[in-house]
Structures are given as structure tokens and as C-alpha cells.
Amino acid sequence: MFKELATLFALCAGSLLTLLLIGRLLQLRELLLNQNLGLLDVGRMLLYLSPFFLLLLIPIACMLSVFLTLLRMNTDLETTALRASGVSLYQLLPAPILLGTLCTLAAWWISFHGLAWGMENFRSTMLELARSKTQLVLQPGVFNREFPGITLYAQQADGASGELRTVFVKDATRGDSAATILAPEGRVRTDTERGEIVFQLRNGRIYREEPKGMSVIGFGTYQVKMDLSKMLSGYKIGEMRPKEMSWSQLNQIAERNEREGLNDNSARKVQVEIHKRLVLPLACLVLSLFAVPLASMFSGLHRHWGLLLALGFFLFYYTLLSLGLSLGETGAMPPALGLWLPNGVFLLTGLYGLRQAARERSFTVIERLRHIKLFGRRTADVR
């Protein structure tokens, strides 16, 4: 039984992960085409994204494997034969519990270590792509228009250090107040923490056209900043978000917020992320137990309908979890209550259903539907 569970789990997890990664590839297609990345680089980026998706996919794959395995056993009357030979439903639980426990441990490792590793490397790869593209467009004696809203010309440009000589910049990033900047020297650098490209010019002048004429302003140092996301086809870099942080970073920020008495939106997001990384791994075990009586209830259902049914129940679980996330971030509900509530509801429902199924008191929905259909036919014949 455990072998069948493990096989179905690997099949479900692999299929869902492939679909999600293909979807993310389609979102980043412009970035990948513009950067001319090879297959090895694309594969490396997908590897970095995998922990983020696996944290969500492992619970659903665990639930699907348990549900489909027991549904097949019930449909083929294997469970009935086992009960007739004296094997109770409780004696079938070790295999689903073992699978749920192993999945919980794997998801915990991803939550505490793998997620931060993947997001950090993915972010570093994106920043390296931005740096590479910045160096490529810094060609001396050429009007570079690769930076959205900025036209850059430098008589001399060093792509490695970013140093510029005799610089002309047309800054149209501020809408109607476009400015022309001339400077004898400058430098281009990338601010990785804030996710920005910074054009730092020295000892120049700013020419700005106004209704009454032209204004000229001299400066010692002037900076033009541009979001790196515009260089990466809209991929958001910016400051590191809670979902990209490691477990230790989240706890350090949470402790600091508690000491300072902060309860703003950013502090609540950190609390929500901490609880989410604990809730999702435990969902593997909770959903495995929930799937056992669910399979008994829908005995006789075809596999493809069973797959849709299990996906529907997980969608309901994820809806409750998403609602808890939203309410926790807005402060309408404590993050602990909002995120742990779905696990509590499904655990209690699963334990009650398991108790009823073990006593053979649970009704089979499929049989009830057949009785209703048969009753409807008889009523029609009488009429």
C-alpha cells in the first residue's frame, strides 16, 4: 500500500510542479528571450523556483495519493475483503500516516532551509542578469536607449567599472518634467538591496524646459535612479520580501518588531509568513488523515472524477488559508488564528469521519445518489 502511495505521490507532485514551472516560464518568456539564456541557465532558474512551489504542492500531492489509492481499493472491493478477513480501517492507517509524516518532514526542510536558498539564488541570478545587461548597453559613443525613459550617451564608457566620461543624459522618467543633463564624468552602478540602477553624475548641469524659458541648474553630484524591474521585463526585485527571507531572518525581524511594539502592515506580513511556513508542512499529515474517510464516502467513483473531487476539497482548504492570509495581513484577524484554522477544521472533520468510517456508519455518497436516481426513475414510471 505504501509503495502505491509513494508512486502516486511522485506522479502527482511531478505533474503539478511541471505545470507550475511551465506557467512561470511563460510569464518570464520576454526576459528569457531578451537575455538569450541557454537551457542550462533556464534549468538552473527553474531549480531555484522549485522549493517555493513544492511547499504548496507537497500537501496536495499527499492528499491526492492517499485519496486515489483508497478510492481504488474501495472501488475494487479490496477494502471490503480486508474487513471481512478481520482487518479494520485503523490497521490501514500506518501507510497514509507514514507518507504524511515523511512529506511533513520534507516540507519542513523546504520551509526552513530550501525556500530561502532557492529565492536567494533566484534573486541573485536576476540581479546578475540586470548587471550583465547594463554592462552590454554601456557602449562608448552610442546613444543607448535600452534603459526605459532614459537616453544615455558617453564619449568614454567602461562596462566593467561603470565609469563614464563626457556624459549626456535625457531623463524622461518623471513624466512631463523631462530634463537634459550634461556632466564631464559619472558612473553607473546597481543597488542590489533596493533593486535599482543608479546613474551618478558629477560637476554638471541640468537643463529643463519650462513655459517661460529654459532653466539651468548646476550640481556637484546628481543621481538618476531607475527600477531594475524595468530592465527585467517587469520582474519585481526591490527590497527582500518576507517570502524570500530565511527562517532566522523572519524570527529576528519578528523579535525586533515585538520589542519595538510594531504592528503595522510589514510586521503582520512577517508574522503571517512565519505561521504559513509551519502550517503548510503540517497540512500534509492533516490532509492525509482527511482523505481516508473521504475515499470511503465516495466509494465507487471513477478515478478522474475522484481527482477533480480531491482538487475541489484542496481548493476549499486553500481558499480558507488564503482568507486567513488576507485577514492576518490586514489585522482583521490574528495571523495565528487565521492560518491555523483550516488545519483545525480539516483535522477535526477527518478524525470524525475516520471514526464513523471505522464503525461502518458513514454513508456512501455514490450509493445514495444511485438510490435517488433509481427512486426518480420509479416515480416517473408510476406516473
Rank of each mutant, 00 (worst) to 15 (best):
D158T: 02
F199I: 13
A154N: 02
A172W: 00
R165I: 00
I206T: 09
T134H: 14
T166H: 10
F199G: 08
G149H: 07
S161G: 01
R131T: 15
A178N: 04
A179H: 04
M214D: 00
V137M: 15
L164Y: 05
F143G: 08
V216R: 00
G175D: 08
I181W: 00
E196Y: 07
L136H: 15
E209R: 11
P211G: 03
D158E: 06
R187I: 11
G218W: 01
L138F: 14
L182F: 14
P184E: 13
Q155E: 10
V216T: 07
F199Y: 13
D176H: 02
V167Q: 00
F143S: 11
L182A: 06
Y207C: 04
T190F: 13
R208E: 09
T190H: 14
P148R: 10
R145Q: 14
G175I: 07
T190D: 10
R202P: 02
R205K: 08
T180F: 01
E163Q: 07
E210A: 09
V188G: 09
M214K: 05
K133G: 13
E196A: 10
Q135Y: 13
N203Y: 05
A172E: 12
A154Y: 04
S132G: 15
F168H: 02
P140A: 14
D191G: 11
G162T: 03
R189Y: 15
S177G: 05
T151Q: 09
I197Q: 15
